[in-house]
Amino acid sequence: MQVTWGNVTVTFSNPEEAKKYAEKVARKLGGQVELHNGQFRIK
């Protein structure tokens, strides 16, 4: 499962870890987490 924002992509084998990481990054950037085609995207 991947977490992407800007031109950065981070890949996780565990979807739960990916979700936690995406939420943490979104909080830092003041963005929203979207699940899109099996990727968490931060907008």
Score class of each variant (00 low, 15 high):
E16G: 08
Q39G: 15
Q32P: 04
A22H: 00
A26N: 02
K20P: 01
N14S: 14
R41N: 10
Q2I: 13
N14H: 07
N37A: 05
T9R: 04
F40P: 03
E17F: 09
P15L: 12
T11W: 14
G31A: 11
E16I: 11
R27E: 11
K28F: 15
K43Y: 12
K24C: 15
N7T: 10
V8D: 03
G6I: 03
H36Y: 11
F12T: 00
L29S: 06
N14W: 04
E16V: 11
M1N: 09
V33C: 04
F40T: 03
K24Y: 14
F12A: 01
Q32F: 14
V8R: 06
W5E: 03
Q2R: 11
W5D: 03
L35V: 13
N37R: 04
R27D: 07
Y21E: 02
G30E: 04
K24N: 10
R41T: 13
K28A: 14
N37H: 05
G38P: 02
N37C: 13
A22R: 01
F40W: 14
S13E: 12
G31M: 09
E23P: 00
V25F: 04
E34N: 04
V33G: 00
T4L: 12
T4P: 01
A18K: 00
R41P: 02
G6E: 07
G38I: 02
G30W: 05
G6Q: 06
L29Y: 11
F40A: 04
V8S: 06
T4S: 14
Q39S: 11
V33P: 03
G30Q: 07
F40K: 02
N7I: 06
Y21Q: 02
P15W: 14
T11E: 09
Q39T: 08
A22M: 04
V10Q: 05
V25E: 02
S13G: 09
T9Y: 05
K43C: 15
G38D: 06
F12D: 00
Q32E: 13
G6L: 09
E17Q: 12
L29I: 14
L35W: 09
N37I: 03
P15H: 13
Q39L: 05
W5Y: 10
K28E: 12
A22C: 04
E17A: 14
K43A: 11
I42A: 01
G30S: 06
F12M: 03
L29F: 11
G31Y: 06
F40S: 02
L29Q: 04
G31N: 03
G31H: 07
N7M: 05
E23D: 10
S13L: 09
G30A: 05
E34W: 06
E23A: 08
E17M: 12
E34I: 13
M1I: 14
V25R: 02
Q32H: 13
E34Q: 08
V33S: 02
V3Y: 01
R41F: 15
G38K: 05
V8N: 09
N14D: 13
T4Y: 08
G30M: 06
R27K: 14
G30N: 10
R27Q: 11
T9G: 01
L35F: 14
Q2T: 15
Y21F: 15
Q32S: 14
A26I: 03
T4E: 06
Q2W: 05
S13A: 13
L29W: 09
H36N: 08
V3S: 00
E17G: 05
Q2D: 11
A18N: 00
P15R: 09
V8M: 09
K28V: 14
G6M: 06
R41Y: 15
R27F: 08
Y21M: 05
K28S: 10
N7S: 09
Q39V: 12
L29H: 07
T4K: 11
E34M: 07
G6K: 05
K43H: 11
V10K: 10
E23Y: 13
Q32L: 12
K43Q: 10
K24V: 10
H36T: 10
M1G: 06
N7A: 07
K24A: 14
E34T: 09
P15S: 12
T9K: 05
A22E: 00
K24W: 15
H36R: 10
V8T: 11
V33W: 07
V10D: 01
P15M: 14
Y21T: 02
K28M: 14
T4N: 08
M1E: 03
G31D: 03
N37Q: 06
V10A: 06
G38E: 04
N14Q: 07
N37T: 03
K43T: 15
E16Y: 09
E16Q: 09
A26V: 05
K20H: 10
W5S: 03
E34V: 12
N14R: 07
K19H: 08
V8K: 08
N7H: 09
K20L: 12
G31W: 09
I42D: 02
V33E: 01
A18L: 03
F12S: 00
K19L: 14
P15D: 05
V3D: 01
K20F: 08
T9L: 06
R41W: 14
K19R: 14
V10C: 15
Q32K: 13
N14L: 07
G30C: 14
E16N: 09
R27A: 13
K43G: 06
V8Y: 12
E16D: 12
V33F: 05
T4H: 12
G38R: 04
F40V: 05
H36D: 11
I42M: 01
N14A: 07
Y21P: 00
A18Q: 00
H36A: 09
F40N: 03
E16M: 11
E34K: 05
R41M: 13
A26R: 03
M1C: 15
Q39D: 07
K24S: 13
L35H: 07
N7E: 11
A26C: 05
R41D: 05
V25M: 13
G6W: 11
A26Q: 03
E17K: 09
F40I: 13
K20M: 13
G30T: 03
T11R: 09
T4V: 15
G31R: 04
P15T: 12
F12C: 12
K19A: 09
N37M: 05
E34L: 07
R27W: 06
N7D: 12
V25Y: 03
Q2K: 14
A26K: 02
Y21N: 01
Y21S: 01
K19S: 07
